[in-house]
Amino acid sequence: MNFRLRIWRQRDAKFRGKLVKYEVREISPDTSFLEMLDILNENLLRAGEEPVAFDSDCREGICGTCSLTVNGEAHGPDHPGAVCELYMRKFRDGETITIEPFRVGSFPIVKDLVVDRSALDRIVQAGGFISARAGSAPEANSILIPKHDADLAMEAAACIGCGACAAACPNGSAMLFAAAKVSHLSSLPQGGPERERRVLKMVRAMDAEKFGNCTNTYECEAVCPAKISASFIAKLNREYASAQFRQRLGE
């Protein structure tokens, strides 16, 4: 298969970027999208040009490193799945493919297709954890957790932290990301003691990082490679409202 590519090139955050045209030829349909970019980079290198910078690591959809917008969609057309799980058989021969980084104000561009997503780490640092010191834990089976709750926690915990939710959101909101962590931990009894502090702090951190607000467009859910349900955002809102209410009562 042959493809025409339009790829975002940008030297660093300070320089202006632009779309640059490239071509790749004789690509097998079983090639993954990122392997197609590897082939392009190999060609560029041989021609004495600078290869395109893009992020990837595990290349099996779990580490959340890859972060491309393909033809306007975060992670490309094959949902649910990260762009490393996208295969060229999903495209038409001869198609023009536009490749851009995730576009979110809170994810500054580092170079070409690479963005800085450290804002997501800072949201978790604000409170996305259960404080359990090594050595203090009780016997594992002394905490019984109904299967339904454990399954629900697992569904939320499956988030790979790629940030596609924010990239797809017209408001640049990271609500799905934060909601997944809040829901995971508040569905479990171990998460109980820090439940209110956690949600208040994480939402505040999200605002401080200048992520937008949720207006229920569901774009996040549509592109999420881990199939995180937007209903967790409703849970986040309930948790937040209740925590805030209780905090006010306490004041």
Partner: peptide, 16 residues
């Protein structure tokens, strides 16, 4: 024990 305390959602039986 440590991982359960941290909230790792291990698979459970219906009994919990």
């Amino acid at each position: 024990d440590q991982c359960v305390a941290q909230g790792v959602p291990f698979a459970r039986e219906y009994s919990g």
